[in-house]
Design a protein around this nucleic acid. Structure first.
Length: 439
RNA sequence: GGUCCGGUAGUUCAAUUUGGUUAGAGCACCGCCCUGUCACGGCGGAAGUUGCGGGUUCGAGUCCCGUCCGGACCGCCA
């Protein structure tokens, strides 16, 4: 029998014979038999075993067994929101045991909440991800990435895959992982930045969903050392505002995708999606400092960057006064942005750059890039960098690049804020941080 | 890199303040009961080198020293 999803099960008539395989999420034994919740690819199905019909199977049944259940579909009214579908159950007539665990699972997967410390949860990730809540979170991340792909593909962007083992880093000052590459030293990519820019000359619009690596020894709830970057780069723009406008449309579609395709997971997680934005308020960094200062009484004015505290204050201001969970901050100073960022001719010392803040956290960084060769070389020198060590990158500039810009979204951060998850590690399947290399 | 906090059954916690009988409880696990449950219910059982090492004491989960592991915040950074 072909794999049927939860929606298809709902649509099947009463009495349909089906064979469902899955893993035993939980067993509720009662005197007459048991309710068995079967974990499947896209939901949990309630199954009914009667001791009069399958006594031996009932005896052998354990949590986390892989089984194939055969029986008939019956209508049901199920209150439990973790079950999907909730209007059908399987009256089981036969059970095939495919695999039985050799020891009881170390964590309690049967309860509504997986009551574990973050650290224990991550140590036991192969087990904790079997809990409906944990796996639902990652299905949201998956759908965000899917919405990102679908939207950009429909707007003429080409999906690319750039190398993660590189000769040099893109971000200069930030720490970078070194790896042994045969008889040479190489680095793990901090960003697909250089390759995206080169690709603008031959594809005009490109995007990539892929891992990036940061060797910074942070120990915070919003940093991990390997994360998934949603990157795009587009040619023939007039300024960074074209990039911001594209992101607004992108976010709109991502949110619509989530609400259309992940209703079950969002319900289960109690997530509140932001309304799909038509527009997003935008303030300059100086204005953001003023907002944060007047909201807190502290003086942030003149700081070159936003503190985490300010990100929260500016977001609160945006939500309360402008009704938006999103807010752009633009015009970061030249010194705080990478060397490929274009300066704003209208604002000396400032760049055509932006961050997107969402529910108190920075989730995107973007800008217009320098596309003229001479200007790029000049800024490298001003940053104390040797243009000779960027030869293959500058090859593209010498051969001519259209005006262009782009952005990068941190997938785990966006997911965490949408789902109100405290720690980005829990929006990651197998996070890597300064202390964690396994599982 | 700095400051602070923590480590007790598989797991989440209690007992540490004031050292004192056999370190308790919920969930999971094992056994029994329950004819429609709603991440059930009832009864019983098993489960611990209190991170590790040393010290003080008649007596240490509790106090002291060392060590290992982890967490939070700050710095720095998307």
């Amino acid at each position: 029998m072909p794999l049927v999803g939860a929606a298809e099960l709902s649509a099947m008539p009463e009495g349909s014979r089906v064979r469902l395989h899955g893993m035993v999420q939980r067993i509720r034994r009662l005197g007459w038999g048991a309710f068995v919740v079967l974990r499947r690819h896209d939901g949990l199905v309630q199954c009914v075993l009667e001791s009069g019909r399958t006594p031996e199977a009932l005896e052998k049944l354990r949590e986390e067994q892989a089984v194939a259940l055969e029986g008939t579909l019956a209508p049901a009214v199920i209150k439990d929101v973790s079950i999907n579908p909730r209007d059908r159950e399987l009256k089981v007539e036969s059970v095939e045991f495919l695999c039985t665990p050799t020891e009881p699972v170390q964590v309690d997967l049967t309860k509504k909440i997986l009551d574990l410390h973050t650290d224990t949860n991550l140590d036991l990730r192969p087990l904790s991800l079997r809990h409906p809540v944990e796996r639902a979170r990652l299905r949201i991340a998956e759908a965000i990435a899917g919405g990102f792909r679908d939207f950009l593909s429909s707007r003429g962007f080409t999906e690319i895959h750039t190398p993660k083992i590189c000769f040099a880093g893109a971000e200069g000052g930030a720490n970078i992982f070194k790896v042994q590459y045969f008889d040479r030293e190489a680095f793990l990519a901090q960003s697909p930045q250089f390759y995206k820019q080169m690709a603008v000359a031959f594809y005009e619009r490109v995007f990539e969903v892929g891992p990036v690596f940061r060797a910074e020894p942070h120990q915070t709830s919003r940093h991990i050392n390997e994360y998934t970057s949603l990157d795009f780069e587009m040619g023939f723009i007039e300024s960074h505002e074209d990039v911001m406008a594209m992101e607004i449309h992108l976010l709109r579609q991502v949110i619509e995708t989530l609400s259309a395709k992940r209703g079950y997971e969002l319900d289960l997680l109690g997530a509140k999606l932001p309304p799909p934005p038509d527009s997003i308020p935008s303030v300059t960094l100086d204005e953001a400092h003023e907002i944060a200062s007047s909201a807190s009484g502290r003086d942030f004015t003149g700081e070159p960057d936003l503190e985490p505290e300010e990100e929260r204050l500016v977001c609160r201001h945006s939500a309360e006064l402008w009704g938006s969970d999103f807010v752009f901050v633009t015009h970061f100073p030249t010194s705080k942005r990478p060397f490929y960022t274009m300066d704003d001719p209208a604002a000396p010392g400032k760049t055509r750059s932006f961050d997107l803040l969402f529910r108190g956290l920075e989730v995107t960084t973007g800008s217009q890039r320098i596309n003229e060769y001479e200007a790029q070389v000049e800024k490298m020198r001003a940053f104390g960098l040797d243009p000779a060590s960027f030869e293959s990158y500058l090859m593209a500039h010498r051969a001519g690049l259209p005006p262009h810009g782009g952005l990068a979204i941190g997938l785990e951060r966006l997911t965490a804020r949408i789902l109100d998850i405290e720690n980005v590690r829990l929006a990651t399947m197998f996070p890597r941080d300064a202390k964690r290399l396994t599982p």
